[in-house]
Design a protein around this nucleic acid. Structure first.
Lengths: 261, 261
DNA sequence: ACGGTCGCCGTACAGTGTTCGCAACGCCGT
DNA sequence: ACGGCGTTGCGAACACTGTACGGCGACCGT
């Protein structure tokens, strides 16, 4: 809500709630610039998380920071740049993998799976990410993403991969992770937008789906038998993790066939 | 450009170029509704392809169809619904796989790889897809997507998969495809937005990247050695296809371990 | 003391998606 | 033949959006 309301008057702008006159108004303290890039990015992230992507406008964000909309532009070039910064901030939440003990294949596998799972969890925690991930082309040069990539590469190097090999494997895992999370989070944010509980939403939707899949027997069977289970338990998580495992199996098989074990 | 300009006057709206009076104005031909959902979707697709996502506005789209902006709303509920329709239209471009001869593992693999490759190609052909794919949650119920899913499931069923097995494998491949294409297309559309040729753009960007990766030795090496090759030949295509192959290896390995071969 | 710079913001502009009421039209029952 | 009716198109309007620009006040180096 209206955070930081306690210092509304201390920075010189009139506080409409309390009585103000030119004599009792304290001078604006400019001890520090009152607005920083970090602050903006953090507040944008909070706004996105609480109200979704279409609630993020420069004016609303400025209001949350007790600032005018155009003030943000001294710290951030664009809305696009702001979004890129926020996305990298999310990547900054992810714990970094350590290369320790990665010579053991089991340790290495567990570390990669954990990484992928963390990433997927982050996207599901911030479902607006998928509406933005296609527009922020430069994110892969952001500091947090680069830190993450670097340590993943280090991990795989200690596991015995060549650099380009490691890169390809990483791309495969990350591609799978992002793609899966996209599909899931798109569903999730459609659900959020409908405002209903997942169970209720599903119960309303299922008849229509079964009707629509009448001429597609396999999809029909799939939806009829599978979907409810997926909703009830968190079995999508397991399915995802199994998927990562399958990819790692493929990678190891390829390596074994090349005589590098 | 301005298509259909020949009948600007024949549908009764005043043509600002030619002289018009109430006496020579021909009656509006309402032989057929002049605007249809298909037409709108097709023109929206054309506009998106030629000018990108941020050029698509209801007014511009209406203008292209010699119609007012608000006329579109009789055929389409929302801009969101329009986008969902357009996305499904793109999926309609994809050739459907046939289950013929899929008992042969080689045939089956080739079909799946081809499917994934077609999908990736479609996304790269329409790079705006990635900016939209996160917002159209209901796309997976679109007719074209469903047709595609159904025939993929059929393909894998003839290859010997159980239904839920087939679904999981399909999700893995599709997830990887969408994720990879997202990453690539985001890069591509950032490039398009810059308006430069890929080579020039790269030459300008590379020094900055190498500077930025100074404290990340592995990324540094990777960019220094790898990137130019990727640009020069179309080696990203091969890399993607190899990735799909790796996933299929993993799937087959898992199945073999379960004694289904 | 005083110019220069920097951070902030009010205003303004050119758009955006969407709603609403009205008009024109084909059709259908009488 | 004719009067209502449902459908389709559209102009105006509303509430918002991102952002360029110019000004204003406070700070800092000299």
């Amino acid at each position: 809500m209206a955070a930081r309301s306690e210092d509304t008057s201390s920075d010189g702008r009139p506080d409409p709630a309390g009585f103000q006159s030119p004599w009792n108004r304290p001078p604006r303290r400019r001890d520090q610039p009152a607005l920083s890039r970090e602050q903006i990015v953090t507040e944008a992230l909070a706004l996105l998380d609480s109200d979704g992507i279409e609630a993020l406008s420069m004016r609303k964000l400025g209001a949350r920071l007790n600032a005018g909309a155009t003030s943000l532009y001294t710290h951030v070039a664009n809305k696009d740049e702001l979004l890129a910064l926020v996305v990298d901030q999310v990547f900054g939440e992810l714990p970094m993998p350590t290369a320790e003990g990665a010579e053991d294949p089991a340790v290495w596998r567990a570390a990669v799976v954990g990484c992928a799972d963390n990433m997927r969890a982050a996207i599901m925690r911030h479902p607006w990410m998928v509406s933005v991930i296609g527009d922020v082309g430069m994110v892969y040069l952001g500091p947090n993403w680069m830190r993450l990539s670097e340590s993943l590469l280090a991990l795989m190097e200690t596991a015995g991969f060549e650099l380009v090999e490691a890169n390809e494997a990483m791309s495969a895992v990350m591609g799978y992770t992002i793609g899966t999370a996209c599909v899931e989070a798109a569903w999730l944010s459609a659900l959020t937008k409908s405002g209903q509980d997942e169970r209720v939403w599903m119960e309303q939707l299922l008849p229509a789906v079964l009707e629509a899949t009448k001429s597609h027997p396999r999809l029909h069977r799939l939806y009829a038998t599978q979907v409810q289970q997926e909703v009830n338990e968190g079995s999508r998580d397991n399915s995802f993790i199994r998927g990562v495992g399958v990819i790692l199996d493929g990678i190891e098989a390829t390596r074994a066939a090349q005589g590098k074990g």
